[in-house]
Deep mutational scan, measured.
Amino acid sequence: AVSDRLIGRKGVVMEAISPQNSALVKVDGETWRATSGTVLDVGEEVSVKAIEGVKLVVEKLE
Score class of each variant (00 low, 15 high):
Ala1Arg: 12
Ala1Tyr: 11
Ala1Phe: 11
Ala1Cys: 13
Ala1Thr: 12
Ala1Pro: 12
Val2Asn: 11
Val2Ser: 10
Val2Ile: 13
Val2Arg: 09
Val2Asp: 10
Ser3Glu: 08
Ser3Leu: 14
Ser3Pro: 13
Ser3Tyr: 08
Ser3Cys: 11
Ser3Thr: 11
Ser3His: 12
Ser3Ala: 12
Ser3Phe: 10
Asp4Thr: 11
Asp4Asn: 12
Asp4His: 13
Asp4Glu: 12
Asp4Arg: 11
Asp4Leu: 07
Asp4Ala: 11
Arg5Asn: 08
Arg5Tyr: 09
Arg5Cys: 11
Arg5Gly: 08
Arg5Gln: 08
Arg5Leu: 08
Leu6Phe: 05
Leu6Ile: 08
Leu6Thr: 03
Leu6Tyr: 03
Leu6Trp: 03
Leu6Lys: 03
Leu6His: 03
Leu6Val: 06
Leu6Ser: 01
Ile7Arg: 03
Ile7Cys: 06
Ile7Gly: 01
Ile7Trp: 00
Ile7Glu: 03
Ile7Ser: 02
Ile7Gln: 03
Gly8Leu: 00
Gly8Lys: 02
Gly8Pro: 02
Gly8Gln: 02
Gly8Thr: 03
Arg9Thr: 05
Arg9Tyr: 05
Arg9Pro: 02
Arg9Asp: 02
Arg9Glu: 05
Arg9Cys: 11
Arg9Lys: 13
Arg9Ile: 04
Arg9Trp: 02
Arg9Met: 14
Lys10Val: 13
Lys10Asn: 07
Lys10Met: 09
Lys10His: 11
Lys10Thr: 12
Gly11Leu: 01
Gly11Pro: 02
Gly11Lys: 00
Gly11Arg: 00
Gly11Ile: 01
Gly11His: 01
Gly11Cys: 04
Val12Tyr: 06
Val12Met: 06
Val12Gln: 05
Val12Gly: 01
Val12Asn: 03
Val12Thr: 08
Val13Ile: 07
Val13Arg: 00
Val13Asp: 03
Met14Glu: 05
Met14Leu: 13
Met14Gly: 00
Met14Arg: 02
Glu15Asn: 05
Glu15Met: 07
Glu15Pro: 04
Glu15Ser: 09
Glu15Leu: 07
Glu15Phe: 05
Glu15Gln: 11
Ala16Asp: 05
Ala16Arg: 13
Ala16Val: 14
Ala16Met: 12
Ala16Asn: 08
Ala16Leu: 14
Ile17Trp: 15
Ile17His: 13
Ile17Ser: 15
Ile17Pro: 13
Ile17Asn: 14
Ile17Leu: 13
Ile17Thr: 15
Ile17Ala: 15
Ile17Arg: 13
Ile17Tyr: 13
Ile17Met: 14
Ser18Tyr: 10
Ser18Val: 07
Ser18Met: 08
Ser18Lys: 07
Ser18Glu: 07
Pro19His: 12
Pro19Gln: 11
Pro19Ile: 09
Pro19Thr: 11
Pro19Leu: 10
Pro19Asn: 12
Pro19Tyr: 09
Gln20Leu: 11
Gln20Val: 09
Gln20Gly: 15
Gln20Cys: 14
Gln20Ser: 12
Gln20His: 12
Gln20Arg: 10
Asn21Leu: 10
Asn21Arg: 11
Asn21Ala: 10
Asn21Ser: 11
Asn21Val: 09
Asn21Ile: 08
Asn21Lys: 12
Asn21Thr: 10
Ser22Gly: 12
Ser22Glu: 15
Ser22Leu: 12
Ser22Thr: 12
Ser22Pro: 10
Ser22Asn: 10
Ser22Ile: 12
Ala23Asn: 06
Ala23Gln: 05
Ala23Phe: 15
Ala23Lys: 02
Ala23Tyr: 15
Ala23Leu: 15
Ala23Asp: 02
Ala23Pro: 07
Ala23Gly: 15
Ala23Ile: 15
Leu24His: 05
Leu24Trp: 11
Leu24Val: 08
Leu24Ser: 06
Leu24Met: 09
Leu24Ala: 05
Leu24Arg: 06
Val25Ile: 10
Val25Thr: 01
Val25Trp: 00
Val25Pro: 01
Val25His: 00
Val25Asn: 00
Lys26His: 08
Lys26Gly: 05
Lys26Val: 12
Val27Ala: 01
Val27Cys: 05
Val27Gln: 01
Asp28Pro: 00
Asp28Lys: 00
Asp28Met: 07
Asp28Glu: 07
Asp28Ile: 02
Asp28Phe: 03
Asp28Thr: 01
Gly29Lys: 06
Gly29Gln: 05
Gly29Thr: 05
Gly29Ser: 05
Gly29Phe: 02
Gly29Leu: 05
Gly29Glu: 10
Glu30Thr: 05
Glu30Ser: 04
Glu30Gly: 04
Glu30Val: 08
Glu30Asn: 06
Glu30Arg: 06
Glu30Lys: 08
Glu30Tyr: 06
Glu30Pro: 07
Thr31Phe: 15
Thr31Pro: 05
Thr31Met: 14
Thr31Trp: 14
Thr31Leu: 15
Trp32Arg: 09
Trp32Asn: 08
Trp32Thr: 09
Trp32Lys: 09
Trp32His: 14
Trp32Glu: 09
Trp32Asp: 09
Arg33Phe: 15
Arg33Cys: 15
Arg33Pro: 15
Arg33Val: 15
Arg33Ile: 15
Ala34Met: 00
Ala34Lys: 02
Ala34Val: 09
Ala34Glu: 08
Ala34Cys: 10
Ala34Gly: 07
Ala34His: 02
Thr35Gly: 05
Thr35Arg: 05
Thr35Ser: 08
Thr35His: 06
Thr35Pro: 02
Ser36Phe: 04
Ser36Thr: 06
Ser36Leu: 04
Ser36Gln: 02
Ser36Ile: 04
Ser36Pro: 02
Gly37Ala: 14
Gly37Glu: 14
Gly37Cys: 14
Gly37Trp: 09
Gly37Arg: 10
Gly37Lys: 13
Thr38Ala: 10
Thr38His: 11
Thr38Asp: 14
Val39Phe: 14
Val39Lys: 12
Val39Ser: 12
Val39Gln: 13
Val39Thr: 12
Leu40Lys: 01
Leu40Tyr: 03
Leu40Met: 07
Leu40Thr: 02
Asp41Val: 15
Asp41Glu: 14
Asp41Leu: 14
Asp41Cys: 15
Val42Met: 06
Val42Lys: 07
Val42Gly: 04
Val42Gln: 06
Val42Glu: 06
Gly43His: 03
Gly43Ser: 03
Gly43Glu: 02
Gly43Cys: 13
Gly43Lys: 02
Gly43Gln: 03
Gly43Pro: 01
Gly43Val: 02
Gly43Asn: 05
Glu44Thr: 12
Glu44Gln: 12
Glu44Pro: 01
Glu44Asp: 15
Glu44Ile: 08
Glu44Arg: 03
Glu44Gly: 05
Glu45Lys: 09
Val46His: 01
Val46Lys: 01
Val46Gln: 02
Val46Phe: 06
Val46Trp: 00
Val46Cys: 04
Val46Ile: 11
Val46Thr: 01
Ser47Leu: 15
Ser47Thr: 15
Ser47Trp: 15
Ser47Arg: 15
Ser47Pro: 01
Ser47Asn: 09
Ser47Ala: 10
Ser47Lys: 13
Ser47Gly: 06
Val48Glu: 01
Val48Ser: 01
Val48Met: 01
Val48Lys: 00
Val48Tyr: 00
Val48His: 01
Val48Trp: 00
Val48Phe: 00
Lys49Asp: 02
Lys49His: 06
Lys49Thr: 13
Lys49Ala: 08
Lys49Phe: 04
Lys49Arg: 10
Ala50Gly: 11
Ala50Glu: 06
Ala50Asp: 07
Ala50Lys: 07
Ala50Gln: 05
Ala50His: 06
Ala50Val: 04
Ala50Trp: 06
Ala50Thr: 06
Ala50Ile: 04
Ile51Ala: 04
Ile51Glu: 01
Ile51Leu: 07
Ile51Pro: 01
Ile51Tyr: 05
Glu52Ile: 13
Glu52Gln: 11
Glu52Ala: 09
Glu52Asp: 13
Glu52Met: 11
Glu52Arg: 09
Glu52Leu: 11
Glu52Tyr: 08
Gly53Gln: 03
Gly53Thr: 03
Gly53Asn: 05
Gly53Cys: 03
Gly53Asp: 06
Gly53Ser: 04
Val54Ala: 14
Val54Lys: 12
Val54His: 14
Lys55Ile: 15
Lys55Val: 15
Lys55Tyr: 15
Lys55Phe: 15
Lys55Arg: 13
Lys55Thr: 15
Lys55Met: 15
Leu56Gln: 01
Leu56His: 03
Leu56Asp: 03
Leu56Ser: 07
Leu56Met: 05
Val57Trp: 07
Val57Cys: 05
Val57His: 06
Val57Tyr: 07
Val57Gly: 02
Val57Gln: 05
Val57Thr: 03
Val57Phe: 07
Val58Tyr: 00
Val58Pro: 02
Val58Trp: 00
Val58Ile: 05
Val58Cys: 03
Val58Met: 00
Val58Thr: 03
Val58His: 00
Glu59Ser: 07
Glu59Ile: 09
Glu59Arg: 01
Glu59Gln: 07
Glu59Tyr: 00
Lys60Ser: 08
Lys60Arg: 12
Lys60Glu: 03
Lys60Leu: 08
Lys60Ile: 06
Lys60Tyr: 04
Lys60Cys: 04
Lys60Gly: 05
Leu61Val: 12
Leu61Gln: 06
Leu61Ile: 12
Leu61Ala: 08
Leu61Lys: 06
Leu61Arg: 06
Leu61Asp: 06
Glu62Thr: 12
Glu62Pro: 12
Glu62Tyr: 11
